[in-house]
């Protein structure tokens, strides 16, 4: 049995581009169906997400960023970081959640973080014109990664 992939989009959907993670989760769920992956949309990462991470075979976090030109997309691999000892707030990092999954559940699945750099984080429920077209692009990238993961796991299972 293949462990389901998990997609976690997080941010504040009432702060403009900060809500892009929600939009990508919604887009993926609408296009591929809710059984395509385990989808979570959240304001911020919280401790109980570690349990979902531990149960997944592939984990993808989606967040907004603000340190690169608006609209630019980044993707990086996330590792559990035992040295991530920042005070626990409601603002946990993907590294912190993965660390919890490792320490508490003994699981550290392959994990990636996609970000789109936002342009407008003012109060408002819609994405900026720069970020909005990127939702489909990132959704496609994530879907490709999930499809590759599922194919790989199916091959592995078939050969076992």
């Amino acid at each position: 049995m293949i462990s389901a992939p998990l997609v976690v989009g997080y941010g504040n959907p009432l702060r403009g581009d900060d809500g892009l993670g929600w939009e990508i989760v919604r887009s993926l769920a609408e296009k591929h169906g809710e059984d395509y992956a385990h989808f979570i949309a959240a304001h911020q990462l919280a401790p109980e997400i570690a349990e979902h991470v531990a149960a997944a075979g592939l984990v993808i976090f989606v967040d907004a960023a603000a340190h690169e030109p608006p609209g630019s997309i980044t993707c990086r691999k996330v590792s559990a970081n035992a040295d991530d000892t920042r005070p626990a707030t409601h603002h946990m990092t993907p590294e912190a959640v993965l660390t919890m999954a490792r320490v508490l559940y003994g699981k550290e699945p392959e994990t990636w973080l996609y970000t789109i750099n936002g342009m407008c984080f003012d109060v408002g429920a819609s994405l900026s014109g720069v970020v909005s077209p990127k939702v489909e692009e990132v959704s496609w990238l994530i879907a490709s990664q999930i499809d590759d993961y599922v194919k790989t796991m199916e091959r592995t299972t078939a050969h076992a």
């Binding site: 919280a46 570690a50 349990e51 991530d84 000892t85 626990a88 660390t99 919890m100 320490v103 508490l104």
Partner: peptide, 26 residues
Amino acid sequence: DPATRNIFGVMQAHPHLALDGIKLRK
């Protein structure tokens, strides 16, 4: 020590309590 006085410190020292917190919130 403030470096470990956080949920990760609790996880190391008292993992059952950290798990209880997650289960109750869940």
